[in-house]
Simulated assay, not measured.
Amino acid sequence: MAEPGDVLSNLGGDNAAMGNGADNQPVAGLLSQYVKDLSVENPKAPDSFQWKEQPQLDVQFNIGARKVNEELTEVELKITANATTGQGTAYIVELSYGGLVGMRNMPEEQKHAFTYAEAPRILFPFARRVIADAVRDAGFAPLLLDPIDFNGLYIQQLQQKQAQEAATTPPAGEA
């Protein structure tokens, strides 16, 4: 039990103007995650299990986002994996893996970065497991996707967009 006079005071410190318990600090986090859509095709089974040729893999990624309300955004990883050989398609796996992200008290550029870089980084290991399990359940060795540097890709795409905008914007005074 606290002794008399042993009381915390000035909890706000230099931030006393914010008030005790004020909800004005930036916060972002993943609230839930889920398989939105999963399709597994094994069109040549059981013949494909006898093929000796190593399949060629084509893996495609896409990140989408949809604002649910002021504080909630759905982030969706879409992953398609095709395995083909000279004899045909061994398997096709298409996954749409979603996450509900909450963001509050953040500037728009931080929300954008969290939506397209950090949230996919958090979701990817779970989507990767779903893909591996789906391929294994189709009768093949699990497909273990390599880790992806979502932050690096995000920065690269921002730089490309800025370069494109700079190339299409006439210099000042030439309009």
Rank of each mutant, 00 (worst) to 15 (best):
A2R: 14
D6E: 14
V7H: 05
S9D: 09
L11F: 10
G13K: 08
D14V: 11
N15Q: 12
N15M: 15
A16T: 11
A17P: 04
G19Y: 09
G21P: 06
N24W: 03
N24H: 00
Q25E: 15
V27K: 10
V27W: 08
L30M: 13
S32K: 15
Q33M: 13
Y34A: 10
V35T: 15
D37V: 03
D37E: 11
D37C: 08
L38P: 13
L38E: 06
S39Y: 07
S39E: 05
V40Q: 04
N42L: 04
P43I: 01
K44E: 15
F49Q: 08
K52A: 15
E53R: 09
E53S: 06
Q56I: 10
L57W: 02
V59M: 06
F61A: 07
F61I: 02
R66I: 02
K67C: 01
E70A: 15
E71Y: 00
L72F: 14
T73V: 07
T73Y: 03
E74A: 08
V75E: 11
E76V: 13
I79G: 08
T80S: 13
A83W: 13
Q87I: 00
G88K: 07
G88Y: 00
G88M: 01
I92H: 01
V93D: 12
E94P: 05
L95W: 01
G98A: 14
G99P: 08
G99S: 07
L100T: 14
V101K: 01
V101G: 04
G102D: 06
R104E: 04
P107N: 07
P107H: 05
E108D: 15
E109N: 13
E109D: 15
Q110T: 08
H112A: 10
A113F: 00
F114E: 02
Y116Q: 14
A119Y: 00
A119E: 09
I122T: 13
I122K: 10
L123M: 06
L123T: 12
R128C: 08
R128T: 05
R129I: 05
A134C: 09
R136W: 01
D137I: 00
F140P: 03
A141Q: 13
L144W: 01
D146F: 03
I148Q: 12
D149H: 02
F150D: 14
F150M: 12
L153Y: 00
Y154H: 12
I155G: 08
I155Q: 13
I155C: 04
Q156K: 13
Q159R: 15
Q164D: 09
E165H: 04
A167H: 05
T169P: 02
P170M: 10
P171D: 01
G173K: 09
G173S: 08
